[in-house]
């Protein structure tokens, strides 16, 4: 149990780092956008709609990045831990309890 939960943690941390890297890239995108906007718009006034829409697209990029990670994890969870998956033939270690949901990780784990 100890090793699996460590692995789980490692996976989670790896996923999180990917998210952070993706977000760092997003802000680079912002920089590129801003430069483009400056080249294009030599007028004296701020291009209000461009600013707002650029913000929108940056935010949706962030949202979809995080969304892809979360829903990807979820789809994988649903596929991997469904009871019909051949890997899940063996009952979990809580199933011998009177109520599996009333078990705990500490007492049963080791």
């Amino acid at each position: 149990m100890k090793s699996t939960s460590k692995q789980q943690m490692k996976t989670l941390i790896a996923v999180s780092i990917i998210a952070l890297v993706a977000l760092a890239l997003v802000s680079q995108l912002h920089f590129a956008y801003a430069q483009l906007a400056q080249q294009e718009n030599t007028k004296q006034y701020l291009n209000l709609r461009a600013e707002v829409w650029n913000l929108f697209f940056r935010m949706t990029t962030a949202a979809f990045t995080v969304g892809a990670i979360v829903s990807g994890t979820m789809i994988w969870l649903v596929w991997r831990f469904r009871e019909s998956n051949p890997k899940n033939k063996a009952p979990t270690k809580w199933e011998h309890l009177e109520d599996p949901t009333a078990g705990s990780y500490e007492e049963e784990g080791h």
Binding site: M9, A19, E106
Partner: peptide, 18 residues
């Protein structure tokens, strides 16, 4: 068990995004 660490990492990532 490592539960708490994983959850804190997750919360930290969420807060970073926010």
């Amino acid at each position: 068990m490592g539960h708490d660490t994983a959850e804190w990492v997750f919360v930290a990532v969420v807060i970073a995004v926010l």
